[in-house]
Design a binder for these strands. Structure first.
Lengths: 355, 355
DNA sequence: GTGAAAGCGCTAACAG
DNA sequence: CTGTTAGCGCTTTCAC
């Protein structure tokens, strides 16, 4: 009596527990060991119901659980409570260096609250996204952090049905909590910086317009140039159809016909493509053309020239997203907070006075 | 009759299903709709037992499931079958660009086999790793892909108790399946390349020796230089205590006292630190000192000079790791295959003939 | 404050 | 080939 009933996987004591095959010790085992009814053991183990059990009993149960290395069975608990303590994080592309820092901080906050993070990579494919969402739903994720950012996106309609937080995208409908960098302000700062250097012909290599970031930064560029009194004829715009060096190269070739003295790129990869286009055209950066990127991905400081770019507070974005989600899970009907975190311009060597 | 018994979350049809709160349709609902017993419905739905059900019945059940949008409850199934169809992937650091491509291909293979990938980031901390492993175990992960690579690692002892595959590390004990790039060959190729350029004084900036990669590459360097007939006195070695630019810088400063004409770095980050040390010392790369990195992280081609480095087949590593694991889950007692995938040297601008 | 009992949704062994 | 039944491990009323 008092020992786990199940010993099909009893393991030698010298094994490291975490990597060994599970020895299944159940609540019944704990209860038997502590000499109480399983129901009572359950109450004692559960923070919320603990106060309905005599302190001495609680102690006995807790000790038994400790001694036996009791781990509640997630399946049984989930089946009963309909909660998984798992959160889905839906990313468009894990290899995009923008996301890992966000994921890390999300994971940290959620883990501290007892949640498991289910990371999922949609490969920028709506069908994959649908499939993965279905999977996450089947696993009864308690909430979602969604970083895929098509402007036309089913999530915009799903509204407040399931706890979720949007990252890097603010839907028009303010029903869904969201956190993002203040990209408009970031683009604004970039344009101001160029204007203050003396630029008057500033182009924009816009990102994909079906992504909310691409669209948002484009609008922000329009606003900023207008606000600063630049003629729209002096502000050529080309559209890249993806966030990639190749698309950036194509768009930049087009752009260079308009001979801007400075260019604001939709993101860093587009800026890199632009760098190639400049080299191709025999133009030097920054002496002939200044260039600003967006995102501040790693290694930019080591480029030639080091790229000036708008820095996003990735870690903070992740932290806040996780907090908002926990909030939402706790109070699904609370107001949908929407957070805009400040971006700053990291000035490096790719911007200078025009000739 | 024939409708889901549970309508607390019935959703308007215009909502996108994937993002809406779950409407719970159970096996009983499907069975009722198809007018069979739940047990029969279960058999019909399950590939493996389907042939014990009349084809016409199978069709009816399948259609009912489709019509009602039936999703089996993972908890109930897991509780019953003691399988989760989830696999834990344990990474030391998600922000290391080495891992995302591996994770992506792992995820792809596992998803195709019906498994969910649980990605977990240990932040290079053994305690965090232990905690996360416990969590994964509580969630009854069916297997593990482990990419953390301390040489002293509990996993090395846990042996074949739970299905797992090691990535980027071959334990001495050949009990655990593993897949890695052939780093020794990679280092060998790098040294050969330098020797063929005419270098005779070749240094090594070794990575942390408590990591199996750091140690393995160090040994490979020793082997290669000896094999090629270089005097060990001509092959200075400094140790970086982490894979970082800062550590690389420190180790490189030390190394430069020995005046090698070429340096093989333990990884790319160490190589970057080395680049800084060279600049500091007023040495030009590659004209004064040639430099080779390891891993081929992104952006290296855009550096000044573009870094020559050993390329790891990350995608293939991930694919093979996932396959090995599926194998292992299917036949836990099969032989532990150990795969060594070829690395190739990507020659760029940081290596040249010595003066 | 504790015990008893029901049941979450599923699968698998066994009967028919 | 189909139905019946039991039970995975847990939480949660409801009695006592």
């Amino acid at each position: 009596m008092g020992l786990p009933s199940n010993d099909r996987n009893r393991l030698p004591s010298w094994r490291s527990a975490a990597y060994a095959a599970p020895v299944t010790v159940t609540l019944r085992d704990v209860a038997r060991f502590a000499d109480v009814h399983p129901g009572t053991a359950s109450k004692a183990l559960n923070e919320a119901t603990r106060d309905r059990v005599a302190p001495a009993t609680v102690r006995r149960v807790l000790e038994a659980a400790e001694r036996l290395g009791y781990q509640p069975n997630t399946f049984a608990r989930g089946l009963r409570t309909r909660r998984s303590y798992a959160v889905g994080v839906v990313l468009p592309d894990l290899t995009n260096p923008l996301f890992p820092p966000i994921v890390r901080s999300v994971e940290k906050v959620l883990a501290a609250a007892g949640y498991t993070t289910l990371i999922v990579d949609t490969d920028n494919d709506p069908a994959t996204e649908e499939r993965l969402m279905t999977m996450l739903r089947a696993r009864h994720a308690d909430g979602f952090i969604i970083a895929t950012a098509r402007r036309e996106h089913p999530v915009a309609e799903a509204g407040d049905l399931v706890p979720m937080v949007l990252v890097n995208r603010l839907t028009e409908a303010a029903l869904v909590p969201a956190v993002a960098g203040d990209e408009a302000a970031g683009i604004g700062t970039a344009v101001e910086h160029l204007v203050s250097l003396g630029h008057r012909r500033i182009g924009h290599l816009a990102g994909p317009q079906d992504l909310s970031t691409g669209f948002g930064r484009y609008r922000a560029f329009l606003d900023a140039t207008q606000r600063l009194g630049l003629a729209s004829a002096d502000c050529p715009i080309s559209f890249a159809d993806s966030y990639s060096e190749a698309s950036g190269l194509r768009a930049a070739r087009e752009m260079l016909a308009a001979a801007p003295t400075a260019i604001v790129a939709g993101n860093d990869l587009i800026a890199l493509g632009c760098l190639d286009a400049l080299a191709e055209a025999g133009l030097k950066c920054p002496s002939d053309v200044s260039l600003v990127g967006f995102n501040d991905m790693p290694m930019l400081a080591r480029l030639n020239p080091p790229l000036t770019t708008v820095h996003l507070p990735q870690e903070e974005i992740g932290t806040e997203a996780a907090r908002l989600l926990l909030d939402r899970i706790a109070r699904p009907d609370g107001p949908a907070k929407r957070l805009l975190l400040p971006c700053h311009l990291t000035v490096r060597g790719s911007t200078a006075r025009p000739r």
